[in-house]
Design a binder for these strands. Structure first.
Lengths: 196, 196
DNA sequence: TTTCAATCTTAACGATGTTAAGCTACAGCA
DNA sequence: TGCTGTAGCTTAACATCGTTAAGATTGAAA
């Protein structure tokens, strides 16, 4: 047996994410993660306080990818409005392509509200980053003479629409055929376009 | 020990729902539910195929209350549009007041996509009922000369907005103070009003 | 009264999260 | 070079969970 793995911490995050994506949150156990990383079943406790901490690290990782995906979609289109819409579609697509990860990121499957109040952990920060970028793009599309409060509310509405579409879809609540949509990206684009 | 409980099945659903609401999904185990109902830890298996089936019954129960809450909110206001908006606010409020139940109902914490394809279970049916009522109310507010497809898309958008607000809020993603809102109902009403 | 099916219990299995205690191997110092 | 401390990992155990198999209890039909 090799003692001293090298970088077990990130190996565990990687392993957990891989299990999550392949087999869902139910099967993503600490012990399975340890086995996947080729290490004893109690080893993770030397790098993470508990299972929650591991999953939080995975979620934070996911948020980084998520933020990148949204930003890159926004940049690929010219114009503030088009970019904003493209990032909305990317939001829904990300969720669709990584349903388990997305649920882990947003859901409180992880820390059932029991995170210490002051504990500004990685995930919350990463998620704040995601939304603040979204908000910035939304603001860029707002009419200049609108009061700030209304612009903020519009940004929130935009967020709610894409988040709602994403969660409803990955939970199997939306029947694409019923809307004559060929895929969820198509449907999301049509819903987003109808805004305002 | 009493054998023959009387109506253990519904007692179990009640017990599970009570544990869920008080302690969250994590603590809602089959065994704890059985204990709460004052019955042996394997007794539930004589009334439910497995844990999923129990939770599905709870979710179906929740959907019935949910549908009622939305309908009653819609009826309390006159006018199709006002009623539709009121039911949107009720949607978000229900989620806020029953976060664990709401997650169980919509999330796939329950049946991680592994429900048999043909299995049109109680939950799916109850959830369909909820949305079809919502859709009907949305249609009543649509301009008569709009094509049906567009009206359906608008209904979907309305659904996505309230569902997004609800899930984002119960997962702690929305800071009410940041929007100068006194409660989530207030905020939801403002977001919904800004539609169209 | 006997029998039988419905209903519940007891007991066990494997898996999980978590903790306590001990083992290994590298780094720095003699 | 050899010694030692400590970071990193392992083994072993506990309580809990979902689930199943086998047996006990009961009320009602025959």
């Amino acid at each position: 047996m090799d003692y001293h793995h090298g970088d077990l911490r990130s190996a565990l995050v990687k392993a957990a994410r891989s299990i999550l994506e392949e087999h869902g949150i139910e099967k993503t156990s600490l012990r399975a993660t340890a086995r996947e990383a080729g290490v004893s079943e109690a080893a993770p406790y030397h790098h993470f306080k508990d299972k929650n901490a591991l999953l939080s690290a995975v979620a934070a990782d996911g948020f980084r990818d998520f933020t990148k995906a949204l930003a890159s979609a926004a940049a690929s289109d010219e114009g503030a409005i088009e970019g904003h819409r493209a990032s909305g579609v990317a939001y829904v697509k990300f969720a669709t392509e990584n349903p388990h990860l997305f649920r882990l990121m947003f859901g409180s499957a992880r820390n059932e509200m029991k995170a210490p109040p002051g504990c500004d952990d990685d995930v919350k920060q990463a998620s704040r980053d995601s939304f603040s970028a979204l908000q910035t793009r939304a603001a860029a599309t707002a009419n200049k003479d609108k009061p700030d409060a209304e612009a903020a509310l519009m940004a929130l509405k935009d967020w709610a629409v894409v988040h709602g579409l994403a969660t409803l879809f990955i939970d199997g609540r939306i029947d694409l055929a019923g809307y004559g949509a060929k895929d969820i990206g198509d449907l999301a684009a049509r819903v987003i376009q109808m805004q305002r």
